[in-house]
Design a protein around this nucleic acid. Structure first.
Lengths: 195, 195
DNA sequence: TATTTTTGTAAGTAAGTGATTACATAACTA
DNA sequence: TAGTTATGTAATCACTTACTTACAAAAATA
């Protein structure tokens, strides 16, 4: 029996979690199945995480770090606001497709468990995203690119609907989703709102 | 022990399901808790539904009948397309708030169980909604109310983001959601897209 | 009113849950 | 190389799950 350090095992465990929930569903994510997937016994799992809930919280933190870091870079870049918003949306969409709607699966878990802390962390992620969008829109308005009368907050709400709807579609109807130019099309509509 | 007919019991059971999942979360929706809530034993539950899954499927059908019927009436009415779309969106939003995000909770259940049939029925509900919106938008275009060049399908996708985002917010952050004029604000943005 | 049908209960079932225990051994350190 | 620590296992914990069974009694029907 090979022995690996906690850091490596934690990564393996979290990877296995994502594999299970995206292939067999959250309902099959038992510590039993998870241990089998990793190739260890259940006891080993609890050597590296203090609880199953802790594993899930750690995954939420990973999403926060990965996705929000990408977004921050784009939002803080020196591009023009319209280019920035398009790039932002496309990066957002790409992440969701690549990760098979992971955020919404985490949402389902939080809802299922009625876990306040998990819900709070997920809400935080959404809030961060929305604020980045708001910032970009305000920049565009200040630069005279977009209409001064539009309310950045409301448009940010409208924006958020795009990735969230995509998420839902990816889960409910994984196969039929046609992604060609999805982000460009949606960006086109957002621009009509902003102009 | 009072004995009620299946029809009445089924309604009681489904009502109890909604109470449990909107107060204690899906994870607490066991047949044990459900029977307690209804005030019968577990055995009685299985007299009126053949399985727990059957109860959930029946609730999905109720949502389909209730919500989609309201929507059909509005979509088929003789109002002008802009009035119609506003009314449609506000009715949609009102239903979700009143039912505390029931649709997304059903989504979580379907995801959790990885239940194909449940997913399909939920996707159907979304598709119906989207098609009603598409129909209204096309009417508005034909009447010269809105721009001929806009793609009704894409706008319908954008529309769907509004109730879905609302749903998510209702679950993640029930208290802080401020609903005053929410549907009017969002309608204002949709009109900018359409004009 | 006598009989059948429907609706209820109490007590189970087998299977699964997250987590813990006592113990073993690989890997690191002095 | 000897001793310590980190990482593993196998077995089991107490508890929950959806669902079933054998039986009782209320309600509907004749």
């Amino acid at each position: 029996m090979e022995k690996l350090n906690t850091e490596i095992r934690q990564k393996q465990i979290k990877k296995a979690v994502l594999q299970i929930i995206s292939t067999k569903g959250l309902g099959k994510l038992s510590t039993r199945n998870l241990a089998d997937k990793v190739g260890v016994t259940e006891g080993a799992l609890f050597r590296h995480f203090k609880s199953k809930r802790d594993i899930m919280l750690s995954i939420i933190d990973d999403v926060k770090n990965d996705l929000l870091e990408q977004m921050k870079k784009i939002a803080d870049s020196n591009l023009k606001a319209n280019v920035k918003l398009l790039k932002f949306l496309c990066a957002h969409v790409r992440y969701l497709i690549k990760n098979k709607g992971i955020t919404i699966l985490l949402f389902s878990e939080a809802t299922y468990m009625d876990d306040k802390e998990m819900k709070k962390r997920l809400f935080d992620i959404l809030s961060f995203q929305k604020n980045y969008v708001k910032k970009i829109i305000k920049e565009g308005i200040d630069d005279g690119l977009w209409n001064k009368k539009i309310n950045a907050d409301n448009v940010a709400v409208l924006y958020m609907g795009i990735p969230i709807t995509l998420n839902i579609e990816l889960i409910l109807n994984r196969k039929e989703f046609k992604q060609e130019n999805f982000c460009r099309k949606m960006f086109g509509l957002l621009e009509r709102v902003l102009k």
